[in-house]
Design a protein around this nucleic acid. Structure first.
Lengths: 194, 194
DNA sequence: CGCGACGTTGATTTGCCTCAACGATTGTGG
DNA sequence: CCACAATCGTTGAGGCAAATCAACGTCGCG
């Protein structure tokens, strides 16, 4: 059962009895997503929060001049959504696209609210998710403020080696806040000395 | 009573009975902080989460080369902490300093845990705080990825007009990710055309 | 096989930084 | 309460990191 993976994940943060675990995952539905398929698009409200069972996703914005800017990646055991759209239930400004054929477990917004109301532990779980996410983004902002393009790339390599193989280079460049050409130069320089 | 301000704030997000509200604020202690005094410093664990009743704070990092980089500001009705240090209870990497004589209500980490355990509503409250914070930082990261130094300044003016008067310009520059000189040029150019 | 997406490399440009010098303001000790 | 120092913002000159523009090779896929 695929939902076992989600239960294991949740158990890392709160300990659930069997019946609680079942109640939790009951509200998630499994969805297959083909490569290049979108699960969120601007102007449509992001109805679901998704847990990635397999595959990979990219969350990004497109500016008026057509440039794409990546906000996050997600692979197995990561959550993915346009968070602003999801929690406020207003229209999304981001695209979320599958980078590979993928499988997710998704929960609808109102179902999540019910779960949180029904069981203190579920509330705790989502609180912890948000806190970890916030702490992560603080580290990211600080690192971006304090480091050069090359250092940001090195840091990404170090912290997310498994992502590097799986995301296209133009997407990584836009996540790190540099042009694809510049990332290419950085990589090339480093493979020569390494 | 100063704690009334905190209760009002919390009531915006969860509705508390009188006894609940009292239980909540009982765990906060009021502290006066003088201008230029630090409430958090690197290598010391950030033991408290603080709610600002009055005054202003600045959270920043200092890099090896001596440059300061501002992660956040906080004025009345904002929360302030080195969030990574606080939630993981490990040594801080940031400074938090009072920009003016200030008053805060602070809660100790273990007390916060007790509160969250004791009452589902309190758990909900902190969950909402974290989610709003995370959504905010997502918007910030995206804006930083997609806009020039000048646009970032204009955007800050628009969204936080009341902050601009109250934080020193070098601090704002480092929050926006530019040099003080460059921010000075931007402001000067704009006051001429405005 | 041929097209389109992706990555690479070179040439040029630019947004922003650094360095330096100088007023203005604030704080402080005598 | 004044003099002096320190801090903060401004302005100019020059430099650099990274963007942009352009051309080309390669690979995957229809």
């Amino acid at each position: 059962m695929n939902k076992k993976k989600l239960i294991d994940y949740v158990q890392n943060f709160v300990s659930l009895e069997n019946d609680e675990a079942e109640q939790f995952v009951l509200n998630f539905e499994e969805v297959k997503v083909k490569k290049r398929q979108f699960i969120v698009q601007p102007n449509f409200t992001n109805k679901y929060r998704a847990f990635v069972l397999g595959g990979a996703f990219r969350t990004y914005a497109v500016t008026d001049d057509g440039q794409e800017h990546t906000l996050q990646f997600a692979i197995e055991n990561w959550w993915v959504s346009d968070f602003n759209s999801y929690i406020y239930q207003h229209p999304a400004r981001l695209f979320i696209v599958a980078l590979d054929d993928s499988i997710i477990l998704q929960i609808e917004y109102s179902k999540e609210q019910e779960l949180k109301k029904a069981n203190h532990k579920f509330e705790t779980f989502f609180r912890i998710m948000a806190e970890k996410g916030l702490a992560f983004e603080h580290r990211r902002i600080l690192f971006n403020l304090t480091h050069s393009a090359e250092a940001r790339y090195e840091n990404f390599l170090l912290n997310f080696p498994n992502f590097v193989q799986r995301v296209p280079q133009y997407a990584l460049a836009s996540y790190l806040g540099m042009s694809t050409e510049f990332l290419s130069r950085i990589r090339n320089k480093n493979t020569q000395k390494g």
